[in-house]
């Protein structure tokens, strides 16, 4: 029996790791989106109360954040190394190359996983600087919940998405995330061996629908705020 360390360095191990980390990140996106939709709650302070609740978790939040960062970087590292390995396995490309069509899953989405992935990586850094490490109480983004002074992240979100550059940029990136997940969700199931010929087309369709729902869900917020002037 191989050691776990050896197994994880084989082509099977790399795929199992991309699969598990990919699913983990997708689940994170689902939770993140649910949080975003509290912006539309009938309670105007729901969003700020939610972010305040996360911060009140203290150490637990740090722990989750550290796990997220590790998973994210591991996923990106393996994804890019798979892509680099390809260049070694076929240094000379075909002069003419075409897909044979169905049942191939070779699509724009699957062929651009590394590109959409790198865009997600860069976007995530910008996104964190905009919101997580963006202006807070000291810069006047203050509100009061039950008499307590908290950061008014909701107003920051509303302010940021008055700027069309942010709105266009976010929309574009969310579409690319949709592409990443269009192939990614189905692919992660195949990577984990959780697949059969009957199940495969079903999961491919469901994966596409989840990808579409996440992309539309995320890009809805900035566009809505821009059009309506704020929530």
């Amino acid at each position: 029996m191989p050691s776990l360390l050896h197994a994880l360095q084989t082509t099977i191990g790399r795929k199992i790791l991309t699969g598990i980390t990919g699913i983990f990140l997708t689940l994170f996106l689902v939770v993140h989106l649910a949080g975003n939709f509290s912006l539309f709650s009938s309670n105007p302070e729901a969003f700020n109360a939610y972010t305040e609740f996360l911060h009140s978790l203290g150490t637990l939040l740090y722990l989750v954040e550290i796990i997220l960062v590790i998973v994210f970087l591991l996923h990106a590292y393996i994804g890019i190394s798979i892509w680099l390995r390809k260049r070694k396995a076929r240094p000379e490309n075909y002069s003419v190359y075409k897909t044979s069509g169905e049942p191939s899953r070779q699509t724009i989405a699957s062929r651009t996983m590394a590109i959409t992935g790198v865009v997600i990586l860069v976007f995530t850094i910008v996104h964190l600087f905009t919101f997580k490490w963006g202006p807070g109480i000291a810069e006047g983004y203050v509100t009061y919940i039950d008499g307590q002074e908290v950061r008014d992240l909701k107003r920051l979100v509303n302010d940021i998405f008055q700027n069309e550059f942010y709105v266009i940029g976010y929309t574009a990136v969310m579409i690319l995330i949709g592409f990443h997940l269009r192939h990614g969700i189905w692919s992660s199931m195949q990577s984990l061996g959780a697949m059969s010929p009957k199940l495969s087309p079903v999961i491919y369709t469901i994966g596409g629908l989840i990808a579409l729902a996440l992309a539309v869900g995320f890009l809805f917020v900035p566009i809505w705020i821009y059009i309506t002037g704020g929530v």
Partner: peptide, 30 residues
């Protein structure tokens, strides 16, 4: 050889139509 990115192009060109189910089975075997 390179890694598998689940493109499934192999199944489409295979002259005897081996399904990528074989790859899922290999992963389960591992």
């Amino acid at each position: 050889f390179g890694d598998c990115s689940n493109y499934a192009e192999c199944e489409a060109v295979c002259p005897v139509g081996i399904s990528i189910d074989a790859i899922a089975r290999m992963r389960r075997e591992y």
